[in-house]
Structure formats: structure tokens, C-alpha cells
Design a protein around this nucleic acid. Structure first.
Lengths: 262, 262
DNA sequence: AGTAATAGCTTCTCTAGACGAGTAGAGAGG
DNA sequence: CCTCTCTACTCGTCTAGAGAAGCTATTACT
């Protein structure tokens, strides 16, 4: 039967540690030692029988493991050791000018590296105002007009990242930046064509649990946090020309940076 | 009574959406609109009464909010809107040589910036081997001897970060690097004194839910992910001279990097 | 052979209750 | 005034069940 090699231990009802945590410990250990990615755990019924406890106790144990991101439960099928998606490394040179010069946007460069099919989804371009936090980074008044480019990126059909770009309206108006498809090399290439040669970026990274909305958009299982990456692009004249607010499934990314020591 | 302003809506039992999710939606909305940080939610008993559901249904709703990091339950006291700890910004210049020259280690510089008292804890220095992943970064054989410096950092008495440094034994032996206190400017200053002038660092960042062990060491409430930051220090001759494996509470940090655009 | 119903598994939602354990305030006693 | 105990309230753990909903493989039928 499924995953029976897991059923080896018993709980100590006299212990200080709650029974469901003891069971979670057993299962966590079994996952680390004996079970492969994608392998099925014994069903709740079998675990109840083995440990001699009520259903809720088993479910509490499994919930703990779900929250740690170790397993996913699939309704009607079973509970499985979570398979880690292939990690995409975001290297700090991914916005190098040479890529733009060659007509590649950052995301398509990244996709090509892992041999996946890139796709963009739910793309909207509107004009409006930026949230206070963003307007601040652009050194704009809160009611200053900005072009808002919102989109979702997919690799091989699976959503991996949402991004919202804010560009001061005076930089974007009358350029392909306001088109859904801004052309080869992406909006950074267009900004440079307008004479706003890019000098540097700053990236601010935080991590947290997703909102239900984010979990839906990124098709996130429970127990997976998200990265939020806010990138500000500066032109050679020091002006902030774009802010990009990105949310990514944290289990799918490794962010890599290089720092000088001097 | 406590948090009664929250109790304004009813559930729709005929809805497709499970009752506990509807209740979670109500509470999430109330937290965003009406409740301040640290404010108490109505007790489980009051919520049961208001929504007319069983205790487990209320607890499922509250569990969702806990897992999202929005609230923390305190045994015997109540459920409270989680207070975000002050965020510490890790700027990309935090390992600038000038700090070392002035005798400040990176963590004490950071602590001084926010006006907190830094403290180091559970400090151990041993000699052993590095995990494969780390040995690889140091370009060492897996059984090559390394000095392992393990410690926990605290600000104002609260744990914020654990760190394990691996230094090839031939670089560390006979220097203060093998002492619990390596002296002013930290181990990077010592390495430079030994002639290994530092040229650059790479930092690889991932985020995930903490292991129970990590949650304990960092005193993490449920719903808070951790950053894992692996820094490799390279000397001017290109040699990797140290790898530092750091785990941080993600709600307490903002990682900030600067990238050239060329 | 192909299709549709079915049986049997899975997890999901919810109920109703019991006892345990931590907290905090009121009140009694010194 | 101080300390202790008691009590009421909080969340934590666990039991025992029920029906719903989703998935899969078998079975029965066309």
C-alpha cells in the first residue's frame, strides 16, 4: 500500500509534546529520509488507524507539514511530498544593456536560459497615479500622472511572476511604452531610445506570505511565500524613470547579486 | 467589548465558498480597514456566537489569517493583529571596506543605524567539513578542513538572524578567526590583514517557510517566512575565502541592492 | 470497442462536545 | 500594602461523528 514504509513509530501520549506535533515530527523525518519528491503519504484513514488517534489529530499534523511547505494535499487524490519546481536564478546582470541591444527583454533572456517557453498574460496598460510608496521612488507628487503597465509572466504555461511597472507619463506618452507590446528589448530599450540612457537600478527585496489574490494569480500551494521585488531604474541624469513592482513565487527563484568589496 | 466593531457581517451558507473562508474574508477586511496593529480580535466564543457556527469553523478561519501572517494567537490572552517589527534595511554597501577599516563589523554597523543594542549569542567555532553545497562554492573538496563559525545575532535582546561562516582551514589557522571574538572589523578585517584583500561578494537569496528548529531559534510566529542568504567572499586573486550561510526572519528585513545598467 | 454508470477511495467542511493550560483580575487574608 | 487564591475568560488539544466533493478504476451496458 501507499507509503506504508512511513508507518513505523508510535506516539507517546504521556509526552509534553502534543500528539499531532509528534506525528508531524515522524512524518517530517520520514519525508527527509525515506520519501522521494512527489511520493504519496499514507491516507488520513491509514494514519488514524496506525497512530490510534482521531481524524482531526491527523489533519492537524498534516496541516503543519503543509504550512511548512513540505507536502501538498490534493482533494480526492491524496497527500504528496511537494516537488520543488526548478529554480530560476535571477542574476544581477539580467538587465545588462547588451541584452537590450540584441532586442531581448529580461524575461525572455531568462526563459531562454532554462529552455522554457515564455508567455505574457493579463497585460493591461493604463494611465493613472502611482501608490504613495511608488510615487516617492519616482520623486513624483502622488497625483502625478504615470503609465501603469501590469502583466503576468508564465513559463511553459505556468504563472511565475506578476509585475506592475510605473513610468512617469511625460516619458511614456507618444512612445510604444503605452502599447501592450512595447517592441524588441522591452520598455528599457524604448526609454533609452528616447535619450534616457539607463545608468543603474536599485532592487529592494522583501518576502512574506501571499495574499489570497496573489496565491490565486500565481497558482501557489499553501506554505510557499512570495518575493516582492521593487526595482527602480535611474537614467544617467539621475532621474528615476521607472519603478517595477514584482511578486514571485519564492520557491521558484534564487536571486543572485554581486557586490564590490571596496 | 473587545473588537466588536468587527462583528458586522453574516455568512451565506448557500455560497460555494466555505463558511470558514467567508469568515476569514470578513476578518481580513476588518483588519485592513478598522483594526490597528496589536488590536485584539473578538474571542473564538464571541465569533461562534456572532456567526452561529461551531468552534472549529472559527478556528479554521483564524488559522488562515495566522498562516497569512496577519494575526498571532496568544494562549490564554486572545488573538491580535500582528505588529510588524521595524524593518532593517540591508544595503548593498554594508560590507564596504571603510567600515572594516574603522573597526566595525557589518552587524554592528547595521545595529547602530537603527539605534539598537547588538548582541551575539550561541557562538561556536569548530573545525570540520562543509556541506557539499558550501564546499562547492569554496572550490574545496567535500572533505577539506574548514573552520566553522556559528552564531546568532540579537537586537535589543530579540533574535533576528543566525549565521554560519565557513573559512578554508589554511586561511584561518593561527589567526584570530578561530577565536570566538575575532577582533575589530570582524573576520573580513582579519582575512585582509592576512593578505587576502577582498574584491567582491556574491549573495544568493532564497525564501521559504522556516523549519521548526529555525522558528525556535528566531522566535518566529506562524506565517513568517525566512530569507536564506548565502554570501561568498572573493579575494583579489579570485579565490573564495569565505561562505556565510544566513537565515533571517523575513518580516524584519529589506534587502537592497544596486546594479549597474551597462 | 467505446461509453456510461458505479463503487470505493481520497480529502474537505462542519458539527458538538470535553478537558487542558495559560492569563489576568477580583477578592480574601495576612 | 502586599500576597495569595480563586475564578472567569482566553486559546490549545483531542474525540467521534456526518455528509460533501473530487478522483480513479472497475463494471455494466450499448
Amino acid at each position: 500500500m501507499t507509503g506504508d514504509a512511513v508507518l513505523t513509530q508510535a506516539v507517546d501520549p504521556g509526552s509534553d509534546r502534543p500528539v499531532y506535533k509528534q506525528i508531524a515530527d515522524h512524518l517530517r523525518d520520514a519525508i527527509a529520509r525515506r520519501l522521494a519528491e512527489g511520493e504519496q503519504l499514507p491516507s488520513e484513514a491509514r494514519l488514524m488507524e496506525h497512530y490510534g488517534v482521531a481524524r482531526m489529530t491527523i489533519r492537524n499534523a498534516l496541516r503543519l507539514l503543509q504550512d511548512e511547505g513540505l507536502v501538498t494535499a490534493e482533494h480526492g487524490r491524496g497527500v504528496y511530498v511537494r516537488a520543488r519546481p526548478p529554480v530560476r536564478r535571477l542574476a544581477s546582470d539580467r538587465f545588462a544593456q547588451r541584452h537590450r541591444k540584441e532586442g531581448h527583454a529580461a524575461f525572455s533572456v531568462e526563459a531562454a536560459q532554462v529552455g522554457a517557453t515564455p508567455q505574457v498574460d493579463m497585460l493591461t496598460v493604463t494611465e493613472g497615479t502611482a501608490p504613495a510608496e511608488i510615487a516617492d521612488r519616482l520623486r513624483l507628487a502622488e497625483d502625478a500622472p504615470v503609465v501603469v503597465r501590469s502583466r503576468r509572466y508564465l513559463l511553459d504555461g505556468k504563472p511565475v511572476e506578476t509585475a506592475v511597472s510605473y513610468i512617469p507619463a511625460d516619458l511614456a506618452k507618444g512612445t510604444p511604452i503605452t502599447d501592450p507590446n512595447p517592441g524588441p528589448g522591452g520598455i528599457y530599450a524604448r526609454l533609452e531610445e528616447q535619450g534616457h540612457t539607463l545608468e543603474r537600478f536599485t532592487e529592494d527585496i522583501t518576502a512574506r506570505m501571499p495574499t489570497p489574490e496573489e496565491a490565486r494569480l500565481l497558482a501557489l500551494p499553501p506554505g510557499v511565500p512570495v518575493f516582492r521585488l521593487v526595482r527602480t531604474a535611474y537614467a544617467v541624469d539621475g532621474r528615476a524613470v521607472e519603478v517595477c513592482d514584482t511578486v514571485m513565487a519564492a520557491d521558484a527563484y534564487l536571486l543572485s547579486y554581486e557586490l564590490p568589496a571596496h
